[in-house]
Design a protein around this nucleic acid. Structure first.
Length: 598
RNA sequence: GGACCCGUGGUGUAGUGGCCUAACAUGCAGCCCUGUCAAGGCUGAGAUCGCCGGUUCGAAUCCGGUCGGGUCCGCCA
């Protein structure tokens, strides 16, 4: 070993120890006659002192050394002189007096600042020099956090008799879901493997194969356009159990994620027990199926109140079967024309034909009863009586000083628009406590959704999800009313996990495929393996999958999963460090029986 | 497939038609300095403003295109 001690481990108790350190020059302060080097390794930094008078040889080497050079230091740990402690560094009470300095490697001047306090460099540059970026504490901390998360999960599940099983990366393409990444077969001309979008069928088959408690930290691949929280390859905690019901899985998820958060990020508060809300409630109250529960500002239905007003926009919408819904933005009654126009254009962008705002002037302590006509500022004020306004304000839980944002539209549009407005206002008003992890379950998803364009039923989540027992017959009579044993775990507006109890009876699974427009022959070709397996004593089973990258992003307070992945790709799915994807040699293509078109 | 934002010394930014012979900070190089910790002081080098084309007497600045990055919509069962 080039070292016997970690830089970041040294404390005053180590005083007098002879140590050998090795690491990178983090910073260098040359005072002439004495040079301080902050030597950094994976554990942190410690100050090394090069003294011209006492150790002229090491001092001479120190004159040459530059940031990111790799040094080996032999020296004595010493308490710092009175008054020179650095309380900002855990090693700030000591320094290492260098007797011998050895240069293990030099370094070019880094292409960007590795200093934590420096402004963030261009992300492209950071990706190209990822091996330098990884030396920065934040990225290193994120990798450590990720390791802890995965280790916690493995330990937790192992203790509960789960076993981790690997499943193939070269699998079969299926028509459902995302675009597949394809791998051409050399030995079967014109045939392709697909990389797994998730090990969905495999985990079910494992349970059917008697692995009653399965999990895997599984890499998944989806060839779709990227986002801050989406990479072409990502990691899932994939889990499946036999002989379980919905409640068993929900209980397991709650216990796992609560324990995970509390033990790994104890400084964060966890909302518990996890609130549960139905998909329908989530849409009605939050306007989406992954609500940010860190703040209130819920959406409420105003249809009945609005129908009583003289405002034609409201009345017409209600008469044509639409709804009037709104939310109350706290303390925004003073919004300027410009700010309101801005919100209106956002509402239009999301599909509303307009946005009705009602500002309630006054202080939060003023009563709604005391509201006077001149306190109401709204484009619709002359069509709204004071009682109308009070009625709506009450429904929205508004106080004086708030701004009501009201949308009249078909339910789906109104919910969507208000959901986005809620997110936007929550963000602008900083309503979300950054130290809170507001987990929640969204349950009772519809089993199927009518796809207008293709004139068939779609599975909104997972075609293997089972309907509620009492809804099985609805698949024949009113499929849109059937609710699935399907659940999502959300946290702070991010979808963290999703799962379901699966169909373990072939007739129910076939029925769903049939409604989705698959013929019996297609089913046998695409899903034959799992349908057949259901006929050989498949136990009731279910599970969930959770995006590890998102979990770590959330726990680490990052805005993008690229910050918790060692070597991420850009939004156009390219790897800047290696230059992937890249052209390949004609010979390789010929071997694979592949010809490119352009 | 679409919308929006960004691209200026190594890095981060300012500059939105002539005052730009491009500014500031930091980094880099040299010199000085024995207690700093984002050390300090002095001196210096370093940019044809992503690329192509256009408008103009004149373009970093306006217009069109293109390339790259980012955020979002569609997409992601």
């Amino acid at each position: 070993m080039y070292k016997n001690t970690s830089c970041g481990s040294l404390r005053k108790l180590d005083k007098g120890r002879e140590v050998i350190l090795a690491g990178w020059v983090h910073r260098r302060r040359d005072h002439g006659g004495i040079i301080f080097i902050d030597l950094r390794d994976t554990s942190g930094t410690v100050q090394v002192v090069l003294n011209q008078e006492l150790f002229p040889d090491s001092y001479t080497v120190g004159i040459e050394a530059r940031p990111e050079w790799v040094l080996q230091i032999e020296g004595e740990v010493s308490k710092r002189p009175e008054g020179t402690d650095n309380p900002r560094n855990p090693t700030g009470g000591v320094e290492v007096i260098a007797h011998k300095v050895r240069i293990l490697n030099s370094s070019k001047v880094p292409p960007f600042d590795l200093d934590e306090e420096a402004p963030e460099a261009d992300e492209l540059l950071r990706l190209k020099y990822r091996y330098l970026d990884l030396r920065r504490a934040t990225l290193r901390d994120n990798l450590v956090l990720r390791h802890k998360v995965v280790k916690y999960i493995r330990d937790y599940l192992s203790q509960r008799d789960f076993i981790e099983v690997e499943t193939p990366i070269l699998t079969k393409s299926t028509p459902e879901g995302a675009r597949d990444y394809l791998v051409p077969s050399r030995v079967h001309p014109g045939n392709f493997y697909a990389l797994p979008q998730s090990p969905q069928q495999m985990k079910q088959l494992l349970v059917m194969g008697g692995v009653e408690r399965y999990f895997q930290i599984a890499r998944c691949f989806r060839d779709e356009d990227l986002r801050a929280d989406r990479q072409p390859e990502f990691t899932q905690l994939d889990l499946e159990m036999g002989f379980v019901e919905e409640e068993d899985i929900l209980g397991l998820m709650e216990d796992l994620f609560t324990g995970l958060a509390e033990s790994i990020v104890p400084q964060k508060k966890v909302l518990k027990p996890f609130p549960r809300l139905s998909y329908a409630d989530s849409m009605a109250r939050y306007g989406n199926d992954r609500p940010d529960l860190r703040f209130q500002m819920e959406i409420a239905d105003l249809t009945d109140v609005a129908a009583q007003t003289d405002f034609q926009v409201f009345r017409n919408t209600v008469e044509s079967g639409g709804v009037v819904m709104g939310l109350a933005a706290p303390g925004c009654a003073g919004y300027t024309r410009r700010q309101i126009d801005d919100l209106t254009s956002l509402a239009r962008h999301w599909g509303a034909s307009g946005l009705v705002t009602v500002a309630l002037a006054g202080e939060p302590t003023d009563s709604l009863e005391g509201l006077a006509q001149e306190d109401v500022r709204s484009p619709a004020s002359r069509f709204l009586s004071l009682d109308d306004v009070r009625g709506m304000a009450q429904r929205l839980g508004a106080n004086r000083g708030d701004l009501l944002l009201i949308v009249a539209a078909p339910f789906d549009t109104a919910a969507l628009v208000l959901g986005h407005l809620r997110q936007e206002m929550g963000h602008r008003l900083e309503l979300a406590d950054p130290d809170l992890l507001a987990f929640g379950f969204v349950i009772d998803f519809p089993l199927l959704q009518w796809n207008q364009e293709e004139a068939r039923w779609d599975s909104p989540h997972n075609p293997f999800s089972a309907p509620k027992d009492e809804h099985i017959s609805l698949m024949d009579t009113a499929p849109e009313k059937a609710i699935a044993k399907q659940y999502d775990l959300v946290c702070n507006g991010v979808e963290l996990a999703g799962g379901s109890i699966r169909n373990h009876l072939r007739r129910n699974q076939e029925k769903i495929f049939e409604l989705m427009g698959h013929s019996l022959e297609e089913m046998q070709v695409q899903f034959g393996q799992i349908l057949d397996a259901l006929e050989y004593g498949a136990p009731p089973h279910g599970g969930f999958a959770s995006g590890i990258d998102r979990v770590v992003m959330l726990l680490g307070g990052q805005d993008s999963i690229r910050e918790v992945i060692a070597f991420p790709k850009t939004q156009s799915a390219t790897d800047y460090l290696f230059g992937a994807p890249s052209p390949v040699h004609q010979r390789q293509l010929r071997e694979l029986h592949i010809q490119t078109l352009d």
